[in-house]
Each structure stands twice: as C-alpha cells, then as structure tokens.
Design a protein around this nucleic acid. Structure first.
Lengths: 140, 140
DNA sequence: AAAATATATTTGTATATACAAATAAAATTA
DNA sequence: TAATTTTATTTGTATATACAAATATATTTT
C-alpha cells in the first residue's frame, strides 16, 4: 500500500515517520560498502573534518542526544576508527589513520546516496523538500 | 542548534530523521493522556474502526513490518485493549469494551496533536508538507 | 576557600523497529 | 491426493535512540 493510501496519510506523524524509514533504508544500503550505519558514517565524517571534536558538539551537529553520541562513538572505537581522550570533564574524539584511509570511500557512499535519492525523487524536488523539512524542524 | 544550521542540513537522510524525531516527541506528549505511544494508539484506533482486522492489513495501513505489528498487538493485549483470535493461518484482532470506552479520549488526543502541530507549523504549511512527504514516500 | 550550582559525559535501562528464521496453514501443481 | 509452493503470523535477535540517573569536573557565589 502506498503511504498516500493509508487511512493516516493526512497525519504528519505517520507521514514523517514512514518517509524517514524509507529514506533510512536507502541510506543503509548506500553505506553498506563501508560496513557502517548511516549514523555511524555521519559521525565519523564529522570527526574526520573536525578532529578533536567533543561529544556535545557532535550532539548538536547530528541532532542526537549525548547518550546516543556516546554509544555511536563506542562502536566506532571498537572498530578502531576513532579514539577518545579525556581531560577533565571534556572529551575529544579523533579519527585514527584507518579512518583517514576510509575517507574516500565514505565520500563515495555519500555520493552514491545522493545520486540514488535524486535519481528516484528528482534533484529539485529533493532539495526543495529538504529545505522545507528543515524549516519545519526548526520550528519544533 | 537549528536543523538548518547543521553541516548535514542539505542531506535528506539527516533532515527527514531529525524532523521525524521532533514530531515523534510532540506525538508522544499528545498521547500520554491515554498512556499509549503514538504507534500503539494508531494501531488501536485502526482496530476500533475495523474490528477483526488482520495483522497483515495493519502492517499495510501503518506501514510497519509484520513483526512490529505483532509486538504492538502483544502490548495492547497485555493492557486488555485488544484480543486476538486465530483460525488457521489467519489472526483477527478485536477491540475490547475497555478500548471502546477509550475511543473518545483517543479522538481528543488526535485532535490535540493536530492542533499542536498546526499551531506551531501552520495549518496550510503542515498539510502541504504532508502531501509532499507522501508523494516522496510513494516513490521509494 | 568552602559550598552550591552548572556543565559534559557516561551508564543503566527502556522502547520502537526491523530482519531473518521458524511455524503453520492454505493454495497450487503434479 | 501427495508434494510443492505460497501466504500469514510469530519468535529470536539485533539496532538505534532516548530518558533519567550517576559521575566527574568546572564555575560561580558566599
């Protein structure tokens, strides 16, 4: 059944979640090549572009709670893709050489995901939707 | 930080998820009065309007996997809000009297949620977005 | 400087959801 | 009608995320 055919198709809760789950699926597929979930990949890319970044900043950038950030970092640490140093109450997260080597592949995955999306949804429509979703999100 | 200020604000994966999580939060708040999560509430409302509905149909309507539907039903059964009967490979889900009594309150929660959303986001903008999200979702 | 408060992070625990496999029944084919 | 395939549902297990509490440090106030 199409989303627009459900009895709840006029409910923003329903539609936003259904859409997010479908996009998640596409994203998972795109990042399989590097054996990371989309969230882990985005966190890692952020750490790569801002070595030493702190969990609190990551929480803001990725709009995930601090505890979720901790959990994501833990997994990347297990995979030897990041290391944490703690000084006082602050923690810094750094990418490992292994992560730096992975960067080109991560970029490819990002590219692949964007192409898949805009292939299915259309470039203009996608970017218009993203802008509107952000506008909406900012109000909440 | 606003969604639109994140480094990932032009990524549909990021924006769709951020928006969905924020809407989820509003929804959870709206359905607290009946002590149900939004998913459980929507499932229950569907069962109330289609007594005897089968898990497969619920899966289509709510766009959740069959296993998730089973889990949601289990919880509503524990709460004595639905009962399941099994004949052959088919299962029918019926609302209990307790669920029927709850119906007015469920409707109030739905109303409250819509008002909260359209209060913050604007009625027209909300409904335009929902339409577009469905359109997008249908393509995926 | 001691006490109180605020901040950053982690930990314990709970929830929603999904995938894959298992089960069981129905429908189709041989 | 026996064997095979398809369909519906459930179960086992895994993941992402969050909330609340705990921890530990830093800052401010008295």
């Amino acid at each position: 059944m199409k989303t627009s055919e459900s009895r709840f198709c006029s409910c923003i809760y329903f539609s936003a979640n259904a859409l997010a789950r479908k996009i998640e699926k596409l994203a998972v597929e795109s990042w399989k090549r590097v054996d990371l979930s989309p969230s882990h990949a985005y966190l890692l890319m952020t750490v790569l572009s801002e070595p030493g970044i702190q969990p609190g900043t990551l929480s803001n950038e990725l709009q995930l709670t601090p505890s979720t950030i901790t959990r994501l970092i833990e997994k990347l640490e297990e995979k030897k893709l990041v290391v944490r140093t703690t000084e006082g109450k602050l923690t810094n997260v750094y990418p490992t050489p292994k992560a730096k080597e992975l960067l080109p592949k991560l970029k490819e995955c990002t590219g692949h995901f964007y192409e898949t999306c805009s292939g299915i949804l259309g470039k203009d429509e996608t970017s218009r939707m993203v802008t509107n979703m952000n506008k909406l999100g900012d109000k909440l």
